[in-house]
């Protein structure tokens, strides 16, 4: 589980870095170059929600096993 989560984290930072290279800073949105901070925070929040879902999923699996 940890392996998958860390690889996802790694991949998401890769995506952000890749976007940084290709994105041209013409638009108002990226003028200060700090939109990446917001993206990072949104992704972190999403990953924590996913972690919560994963734990819920495993708990349910445990209940299913107990019932058998």
């Amino acid at each position: 589980m940890k392996k998958i989560l860390s690889s996802i984290l790694f991949l998401s930072t890769f995506i952000a870095a890749f976007a940084q290279e290709t994105g041209q800073a013409e638009s108002l949105f990226r003028q200060s170059g700090k939109i990446y901070v917001v993206v990072g925070i949104i992704v972190i929040i999403f990953l924590l929600i996913v972690l919560y879902l994963v734990r819920l999923d495993r708990k349910i699996s445990k209940l299913e096993e107990n019932q058998k």
Binding site: S12, A19, Q24, E26, I35
Partner: peptide
């Protein structure tokens, strides 16, 4: 979804 969250905000 990670890709969408990141690229959705960064895309030109």
């Amino acid at each position: 979804v990670c890709y969408v969250l990141a690229y959705g905000l960064l895309i030109n």
